[in-house]
Write a protein that binds this DNA or RNA. Structure first.
Length: 572
DNA sequence: GCCGTTTTCGGCCCGACTGTTTTCAGTCG
């Protein structure tokens, strides 16, 4: 069962799309889009709010609040139903085809009765689009190609794949003569958990050479658009890359614009408009004279608008503008703040590297402490026993790591009833215990909630590992009442993990925001099963930043003394 | 439909590229 906020958010997003398709007021569509986002990201459960409470959500006025109430009461909103009756759901699906927007989708439906992607493909093959205004032969080609792409994949990719490609592109373009600066921006710079395409920004006096070099990169499979200032390509990695070239002194304004998010940009530009200014990727200008005011750095642009520099990971219009205006932006946790990794594996269970190799690699990263947490015996395939675990502890105690303290821990398995692998006497021998759900994902909401809460109440469980167990794009999160779990964590002194593996990133940013409001502490862990995985921590840190976390929120930025006190969890 | 340092009405971000247009609409980010 989805959270009421998510259901309402999806409904208003649909309504906004339907307004656009039916040619309704574009501003009205935008208002519903904004409200959808605001409600989706709102901390409080909208099903517990009245009209007045709802109207306190930014972008929600009387009319939208009443629609929320209507939906919660009856499961439907008559205004939405009316548009649904006019426009089949398949028409909205048409707009997921690249290059096909709401206007053309409506024309296809009204003129030709096309209401699904299959029907559109048939109509093109039967040459029925030929008489339609605005649809020429190139458009037909593009639509067919767009349909192929959509059917092939068209999905977002994980952040590690995108990071690798982005770094390759930036390295290659930085070598081109005449290129002064080159960086990736977009959702990757904002640290989003999945990436739809990569945006690369270059400053150069002449764009030609770098554009040419870009389209000739070996992994470019297709050039989508090729202009003087902007070029878009598809790559054989399943990701599109946009390159934008701007004059050197536009760097700051361009980086701000190209980093987004779209919603953040709109807010910032609105602030500019209110000050009789105009902000574009070329700079901040006086609206009347057109004279450029600032553009060299992001700091310059924000400062002229009365804002501090806003970290890219916060730029989602989730309150960062308001916080910035009040000068109350959080001092975000950074990778350099992390003093140790508290969830890692070795080849004693399903890791690939030896204890010694993992510890050496961790020391190399400059950690002050490092926990080894192999799987407990309840994950049967790992063949863990008391003897093997105690023997590992001996090895850990004997192993000397330069300036780094080793902690011997375990990743326990949270059983369907909330119990864990060992009794308290045995758990007492560990420096810390991570506990995670690895099976029975479909118990139902009440049972899963009880299961996690009971794990929190175990006095030896310090960290709930990958709390929702989702695998991005593969396995959905478990259905538990997370607010109840968050409250239990705060009450019992149990930290929630931000698992930094790119497949997981669990908790995700929105859950982190909610958990933080409950007063929960977090651990950013790599869950490394091999030496290279230790470096995944950066993705966990980015996710933590997106959840507005500071050093103080994250237990593995603390000194060992403070961490040990937390790990005692009120035990004597 | 929302909102307010141009306030209760009249605005609502801005520019690049494409394809089909003879001057611009649609789409995208």
């Amino acid at each position: 069962m989805a959270r009421a906020n998510d259901e309402v958010s999806a409904l208003f997003q649909e309504y906004a799309d339907l307004i656009s398709i039916t040619g309704g007021d574009a501003f009205r569509a935008r208002v519903y889009e904004k409200a959808a986002r605001a409600i989706g990201g709102h901390h409080a459960d909208v099903s517990q709010l009245d009209v007045k409470g709802l109207q306190e959500i930014p972008g929600v006025g009387k009319s939208i609040a009443e629609k929320v109430i209507e939906y919660l009461g009856s499961g439907r909103v008559s205004a939405v139903e009316e548009l649904r009756a006019r426009i089949p759901a398949g028409v909205r699906r048409l707009t997921t085809i690249p290059s096909l927007g709401p206007r053309k989708a409506l024309m296809l439906y009204e003129e030709l009765g096309i209401s699904s992607i299959d029907e559109l493909a048939d109509a093109i093959h039967e040459e029925r689009l030929r008489d339609l205004k605005g649809f020429g032969p190139r458009t037909e080609e593009k639509l067919l190609h767009g349909i192929d792409l959509l059917r092939a994949s068209g999905r977002r990719v994980l952040v590690d794949v995108a990071t690798d490609l982005a770094e390759e592109v930036v390295a290659a373009l930085s070598e081109v003569s005449g290129v002064q600066r080159c960086e990736y921006a977009g959702s990757l710079r904002r640290g989003r958990e999945t990436i739809g395409d990569i945006d690369v920004l270059v400053t150069a006096r002449r764009a030609g050479p770098v554009m040419r070099a870009f389209t000739e990169l070996p992994y470019v499979s297709e050039v989508i658009a090729h202009g003087e200032k902007k070029t878009s390509v598809r790559t054989d990695r399943g990701l599109a890359v946009d390159l934008r070239v701007v004059p050197p002194d536009s760097w700051g304004a361009a980086l701000l614009y190209f980093t987004g998010s779209k919603a953040h940009n709109i807010r910032v530009r609105e602030i500019a408009v209110h000050q009789k200014l105009k902000l574009s990727e070329y700079g901040l200008f006086d609206a009347e004279s057109g004279k450029k005011i600032v553009s060299r750095t992001e700091e310059d642009v924000y400062a002229r608008l009365g804002l501090p520099w806003i970290p890219p990971t916060l730029r989602e219009d989730r309150g960062e503008i308001e916080a910035g205006l009040r000068d109350e932006l959080p001092d975000l946790v950074t990778e350099a703040d992390v003093r140790g990794d508290l969830h890692t594996h070795t080849d004693l269970t399903d890791g690939l590297a030896s204890l010694e190799d993992m510890v050496a690699a961790a020391a190399e990263r400059g950690y002050a402490y490092y926990a080894i947490t192999d799987h407990g015996p309840d994950l049967y395939m790992q063949r863990m026993t008391d003897e093997r675990m105690l023997a590992q502890r001996e090895r850990v105690h004997k192993l000397k790591a330069k300036r780094m303290r080793l902690l011997h821990g375990v990743e326990l398995n949270i059983a369907p009833d909330g119990g864990v692998d060992w009794p308290e006497e045995f758990l007492d021998g560990f420096d810390l215990c991570v506990a995670s759900v690895h099976s029975h994902f479909d118990q139902g909401r009440a049972a899963l909630t009880r299961r996690l809460v009971r794990a929190c109440e175990n006095p030896y469980v310090n960290i709930i590992g990958h709390p929702t167990t989702r695998l991005i794009g593969k396995r959905p999160p478990i259905d538990a009442d997370l607010d109840e779990v968050f409250a239990a964590c705060a009450r019992t002194g149990t930290a929630l993990e931000i698992n930094a593996h790119p497949d997981r990133l669990d908790l995700g940013d929105e859950h982190i925001l909610r958990a933080k409001r409950h007063g929960v502490r977090f651990a950013i862990d790599s869950d490394a099963h091999a030496v290279p995985h230790l470096a995944n921590l950066r993705h966990g840190v980015a996710t933590a930043q997106r959840g507005w976390l500071t050093k103080d929120d994250v237990i593995n930025t603390w000194t060992l003394t403070r961490l040990r006190r937390f790990l005692r969890k009120g035990r004597s």
